[in-house]
Each structure stands twice: as structure tokens, then as C-alpha cells.
């Protein structure tokens, strides 16, 4: 939001060429997305089929839920490295309560998501009260969460899952060919986050706190609350993603799928949300998710490609995006004398 707004308000102030440069950088993710889609639709026949496009949406749905939360966190200038473990823990808590303890839904789901939110809140408190940088506090939290998951499950995988999780993860709305519930959940998450970030006072505080924490504090913003809230929101999203993910897989495993974390941060940053806070937003995240989804899926669709190269290529693209992200973050208007 701030990026595009800043660009429009600059329009009459700066030379045309600078405007071009600026919009080039804000629109770079969009061009990347279009270029990738063009490339894959030429390189593979199956890519543009509706089934496959729908596949992409399904593949990025879990990421989208996590990405919505991560956007809040990155906008405040913090980072959350615990989401992958949250996803695992939530599955285990839910399955343990449902299967081993025989507690009926919705309690297992509510409890599981509640625990994830609470752990996010605790990371936030550790960060604000004890000044532990969030990449450390959430890293520790990630160990705590995955440790809990292993302990509760005793290392065993649950193959029976609750009906709520099954509905969220593999249900469809309106018959067998209907919309996947998890896509709807993801879209709702993104929509709500978008509205909150763009239109509410809380959203403004998130942006301002990320852009300049001391300035926000001087203006009376309770920045500690904002940091904590962002991490709690990310925890909540981690919880929701956990339910969806276990429903999709049809099982709850105690092993942490590390790629969730890297993919989420990667997608959000690819979209153009700044790692330094204050710039970016849900629109960027959506574009980032689509880029990520297209890239992953597209590489799957190219038959000739050595499957062992996929990760390498994704990594290279991510690195490129990070470089662009950091390169431009220093190019902002600064204090003048």
C-alpha cells in the first residue's frame, strides 16, 4: 500500500524518468509473474490448463495463510521463524486431543489454534519485554513448538484426523467439482488482512511502527503491543495453516516441514514487502505467492527438467528477489538539511 501510494503522490514531484524507475521497481514483481507465466505456458502444454491453474491455487493456499501472517510481521520490521513448527504442533495437538483423548470437535481445533496464537504472543513478549531480537526468540519458539510436537506424539504419526480438519483441508464447496475449502480459507485470510492493513488504525500503526519505531513511539503508538500483536497474528495464521495442512495430507506428522518457513518468507519478500519494515502489503504478498506457485508448478510441468534442479532454481530466483529488495530499500527519501 505505501509503496504504490508513495509512487502516485510522487508523480507530479519527480522527473518522468525517476517515476519510471520507481514504478519499474514497484511493478517488478508483477512483470516477473507475467514473464514466468508466459514462459511456462510456452514451455509446457499442460501449464495453462484450468486444472493446472487450479492446482497452483491449491498448492499455494497453505502458504497464503502463512503469508498473510508473515506480512504483518515483516511490515513491523520483525521476522517469524517459527511458523513451520507451528504447523506441525497444531496438527499434533488436534490429533492427540481428538484421537487419544477422545475430545469432540470443535475443541481440539480451537485449542490447537489457541496454542499457536499463544506461542506467537509469547515470542512477541520475549521480543518486546526482554529485547531478544525476533529472529532469535522465534527460532527458540520454533524449537519449543517442534519439541512439544515430538513429545506429545511420542514421535508417532496420526493417521486419523478430525472431520473439521478434513473439511478445511480437502473439502469442497458445492459438489465434487466445487471450490476447495482451503482456497476459500486462504482467500478469506488474505482479504481480512488486506482490509485490516489498509483501512484500520491498527494497520496504520503496523506500517508506521515498521517504518520508524522510535518515531511511532514518540507519536504515542504502543510499539511493543504492535510487535507482539503482529507475532500473535502470525501464530494464529500458523495455527490455521496447520489445520488446513493436516486436512490436506490426511494425517498429522511430528516432523517439521522446514520448507514452509522458507517458502513463506520467500513468497512475501518476492512480492516486494521490505525486510526492513514499513513497506509492502497484502497485494504484494499475493503477487509473491503467485510467482512462487507458478515457479514451483511450472518447473514440475517441464518434463525435460532434471527434478533435482528445481530447488536450485527456486533458490536462485529467491536470492535475486532478495537482492532487489535490499538494493532498493536503501534508495528512499531521506532526511534533508
Amino acid at each position: 500500500m505505501t509503496q504504490t501510494d508513495a509512487v502516485t503522490s510522487h508523480l507530479h514531484e519527480e522527473k518522468r524518468s525517476t517515476v519510471l524507475k520507481r514504478s519499474l521497481r514497484t511493478l517488478a514483481p508483477l512483470w516477473t509473474l507475467l514473464a514466468l507465466m508466459l514462459f511456462f505456458s510456452l514451455a509446457s502444454e499442460s501449464f495453462l490448463r484450468p486444472i493446472n491453474l487450479n492446482n497452483i491455487l491449491v498448492q499455494i493456499s497453505t502458504l497464503a495463510i502463512l503469508g498473510a501472517g508473515m506480512t504483518f510481521v515483516l511490515l513491523t520490521g520483525q521476522i517469524d521463524l517459527s511458523i513451520a513448527s507451528m504447523v506441525t504442533l497444531v496438527g499434533i495437538i488436534n490429533a492427540h486431543m481428538f484421537v487419544n483423548m477422545g475430545i469432540p470437535e470443535p475443541w481440539p481445533s480451537l485449542a490447537a489454534v489457541g496454542v499457536a496464537t499463544l506461542l506467537g504472543l509469547l515470542s512477541g513478549l520475549a521480543t518486546t519485554r526482554f529485547r531478544i531480537p525476533s529472529f532469535m526468540s522465534t527460532l527458540a519458539m520454533s524449537l519449543i513448538a517442534s519439541g512439544l510436537a515430538t513429545w506429545i506424539s511420542q514421535g508417532r504419526t496420526f493417521f486419523k484426523i478430525s472431520e473439521v480438519a478434513a473439511f478445511l483441508g480437502s473439502g469442497r464447496i458445492g459438489g465434487p467439482d466445487g471450490l476447495r475449502v482451503l482456497t476459500v480459507v486462504a482467500a478469506l485470510c488474505l482479504l481480512v488482512s488486506f482490509l485490516v492493513l489498509r483501512y484500520t488504525r491498527f494497520g496504520r500503526y503496523i506500517y508506521m511502527t515498521g517504518a520508524n519505531p522510535s518515531g511511532a513511539r514518540l507519536a504515542g503508538v504502543n510499539t511493543n503491543l504492535i510487535f507482539t500483536a503482529a507475532l500473535a497474528i502470525s501464530g494464529f495464521c500458523g495455527g490455521l495453516a496447520g489445520l488446513v495442512n493436516m486436512g490436506r495430507l490426511g494425517s498429522a506428522q511430528p516432523q517439521v516441514i522446514d520448507s514452509f518457513m522458507i517458502d513463506t518468507i520467500g513468497a512475501v519478500v518476492l512480492g516486494g514487502t521490505s525486510l526492513n519494515g514499513g513497506r509492502g502489503g497484502i497485494i504484494q504478498t499475493v503477487i509473491g505467492l503467485l510467482i512462487y506457485g507458478t515457479l514451483r508448478n511450472g518447473l514440475d510441468n517441464i518434463q525435460q527438467l532434471d527434478p533435482f534442479m528445481k530447488e536450485f532454481i527456486t533458490g536462485v530466483v529467491l536470492m535475486g528477489a532478495l537482492i532487489i529488495n535490499l538494493l532498493f530499500s536503501g534508495r528512499s527519501v531521506r532526511d534533508r538539511t
Binding site: D5, A6, R201, Y205, M208, A211, N212, S214, V221, D335
Partner: peptide
């Protein structure tokens, strides 16, 4: 320390009183 250099003037001005000016939205 106190201003948000990349943000619009009006946002810098309203931030301390955002609750009074805009309420929740």
C-alpha cells in the same frame, strides 16, 4: 527520529491523534 521520511505529510501529522481523527477506520 520523530518523522517518517517516506510517508506523506498528513500521515506524519495525524499519527499522534489518529484515534481522535479517524476512530477505528
Amino acid at each position: 527520529k520523530s518523522l517518517f521520511m517516506d510517508e506523506a505529510n498528513y500521515r506524519n501529522i495525524t499519527l499522534p491523534h489518529l484515534g481522535h481523527i479517524g476512530g477505528f477506520w
